[in-house]
Design a binder for these strands. Structure first.
Lengths: 150, 150
DNA sequence: ATCATTGCAAATGGTTTGCAAGACC
DNA sequence: GGTCTTGCAAACCATTTGCAATGAT
C-alpha cells in the first residue's frame, strides 16, 4: 500500500529473518518485540533481542510486516497485511482485530492548522477484551466516552 | 467527556501546578514534557522534569489537560479540551490541529476478533507540515498511501 | 571475497520513582 | 500538623547501537 520506498532495503535472507517472519505469521496476538523474542527463542535458542528488533525493522521496510504503534508504549507487530483495524484493551493492553468493512473510510480534512498536506490516517478503537470485560464489570469501573476523541 | 473517574485525584494547587497549566495553555504546539519543562523553567528556574511529569499526570486525571499518545514515542500534551483531531508530520513529528467537523464520526464496529466491548476510538491524521512539505518535494520522496490504514 | 548480519553488552532516551526537605490547607 | 508535593538523582524499560565474529551470496 506504500507507493514509494525511499531507501534500499536489505534483501539477504538469513535463518533468523525467515524464522522470525514464520513465527510472527503463526501468531495472531500482535506480539510485542519481546513476546516475539521468546517465541522465536523456542526455535532459535541463541537469538538476541537486538536481532529481533533489527529484523522486524527490515521486514517492515520490505513491506512484509506491519508495525503497530498502539496506545501503551510498546510497539506491536502484525504479519497480516490485509487492511484491517485494531481494538486496544484499556484493561490489559491486548489488541483485537476489526474488519475493514466495519469502518467507514474517512475523507482527508480540507484544511488543518497549520496547513498540512494530509496523506493518510490511523484509526484505533478501544474497549475491553473478553477477560477484562468481566473484571471490569465486577470490581473496577469502566470509563465510557460520549463521543469520538483523539 | 469521561463519565466515571476511578480514583481520587489530588486537588491541592501548588505554584508549580498552576504555572505548568498556564504555560501549557499559552502554547499551541502540543509540547512534549521536555519542551514544556524548558518553557516552565523560564518562569520557575528550579522546576525539575519529574515535577512536570507528575503534574501533567495529575492535570490529565483532573481532566484539565489532554495527553496525546501520538506516533513517534514521546507523549504530547494539549491544554485545549475542545473536541478536535491531530495531524502528525511524517517529516519532523510536529502536530497540527484538525477541526472536529472535518471528520465524519465513526460507528463502533459491531464485532471484533476476539469479541471486545468497543467504547471509543482514536483518529490521527498524518502528512507533512508546511516546512517539511517543501523539503519533501525537493530532496526526499514522500510516501503516499492508497487508502486508510491503521 | 565481500559486506550484511549476528550475539553480546553497553548506551540511549523518555518516563517513573524513592527519599528527605519543603509547601499547602 | 498532617499530608501532599518538590527537587534531585537513581532506576526503569523499550529500543538502539558499537563491535568483533560469523554467514549469505
Amino acid at each position: 500500500m506504500i507507493n514509494k520506498i525511499n531507501a534500499t532495503v536489505p534483501r539477504r535472507m538469513t535463518k533468523q529473518r525467515r524464522v522470525i517472519l514464520e513465527v510472527l505469521r503463526g501468531m495472531q496476538n500482535h506480539p510485542t518485540a519481546d513476546e516475539l523474542f521468546w517465541a522465536v527463542r523456542k526455535r532459535l535458542p541463541k537469538v538476541s533481542l537486538g536481532t529481533i528488533y533489527r529484523n522486524l525493522d527490515v521486514l517492515v521496510r520490505q513491506g512484509l510486516v506491519r508495525r503497530l504503534d498502539t496506545t501503551g508504549g510498546q510497539a506491536r507487530f502484525d504479519g497480516d497485511l490485509s487492511l484491517h483495524y485494531h481494538v486496544y484493551c484499556l484493561g490489559c493492553g491486548a489488541l483485537g482485530d476489526v474488519n475493514a468493512d466495519a469502518v467507514h473510510p474517512l475523507r482527508m480534512p480540507a484544511s488543518t492548522t497549520p496547513e498540512f498536506v494530509v496523506t493518510g490516517y490511523t484509526v484505533e478503537f478501544e474497549g475491553y477484551c473478553p477477560a477484562c470485560r468481566e473484571r471490569g464489570n465486577s470490581n473496577e469501573e469502566i470509563e465510557t466516552r460520549e463521543g469520538p476523541w483523539s
